[in-house]
Computed example of a mutant assay.
Amino acid sequence: MKKTLLSAALFAACVAASAQKITYVPYTDNPILTGTTISENGRYLAGPDIEGRVFIYDTETGKLKMFQSPSLDDENAGIEAWADIRSVTNDGVGYGDVDAKSAKFDFATGKYNYLLD
């Protein structure tokens, strides 16, 4: 019985945390953005697009920043040039990877840097 109640409470908490009011990110240059993470305070939405780039969107200002590897423009670039964001903080700093290396994406500066170089 305790496991059932705990499971129900956990499910309810997950549903409540997922209930954001973001339904549309206005970006006409690439209509397929796949938001995969949202900051704890709900201000920043982040994730990849279908062309190997990543974005961070500020829900308060409506500004969007895109990040990509310089090698992504090369027609011979492979999937290792693609970027991904796995988490975003309350101040707009995303963490993920680009060029098959761990990276930090900063909304404020519009730049990213490798974490282990």
Rank of each mutant, 00 (worst) to 15 (best):
Leu115Tyr: 08
Phe107His: 09
Ala8Lys: 13
Val15Phe: 13
Asp49Ser: 13
Met1Arg: 09
Thr109Tyr: 10
Ile32Gly: 00
Lys104Phe: 01
Asp29Trp: 04
Pro31Met: 08
Asp84Asn: 15
Ser7Leu: 13
Asn113Gln: 13
Lys2Met: 08
Ile22Ala: 07
Asp99Val: 07
Lys21Trp: 06
Met66Arg: 04
Val25Gly: 03
Leu45Ala: 12
Cys14Ala: 07
Met1Glu: 10
Lys65Pro: 05
Arg43Met: 01
Ala16Pro: 00
Asp84Val: 08
Asp99Asn: 15
Glu40Met: 06
Arg53His: 01
Glu40Trp: 02
Asp29Ile: 03
Glu60His: 09
Gly47Leu: 05
Val25Pro: 01
Lys2Ser: 13
Gln20Tyr: 10
Thr89Gln: 04
Leu45Arg: 04
Ile22Pro: 02
Val98His: 03
Gln20Cys: 12
Gly47Lys: 03
Thr23Gln: 05
Val88Leu: 07
Gly47Pro: 05
Met1Leu: 02
Phe105Pro: 07
Leu45Trp: 02
Lys3Arg: 09
Phe105Cys: 08
Ala16Gly: 03
Leu5Ile: 07
Leu72Arg: 12
Ser69Tyr: 08
Ala9Glu: 13
Leu115His: 08
Gln68Thr: 08
Arg53Gln: 15
Gly47Phe: 03
Glu75Ala: 07
Gly110Trp: 12
Thr23Ala: 08
Phe105Asn: 10
Ile50Arg: 11
Lys63Trp: 04
Lys104Glu: 14
Val93Trp: 04
Gly96Asp: 06
Phe105Ala: 05
Ala8Arg: 11
Tyr57Ala: 05
Lys65Asp: 06
Ala17Pro: 00
Gly110Phe: 12
Asn113Val: 11
Leu116Val: 14
Pro26Ala: 10
Tyr114Ile: 12
Lys111Tyr: 06
Asp74Gly: 11
Met1Gln: 07
Ile56Gln: 06
Ile79Ser: 11
Ala83Met: 11
Glu60Ser: 04
Ile79Lys: 08
Gly110Val: 12
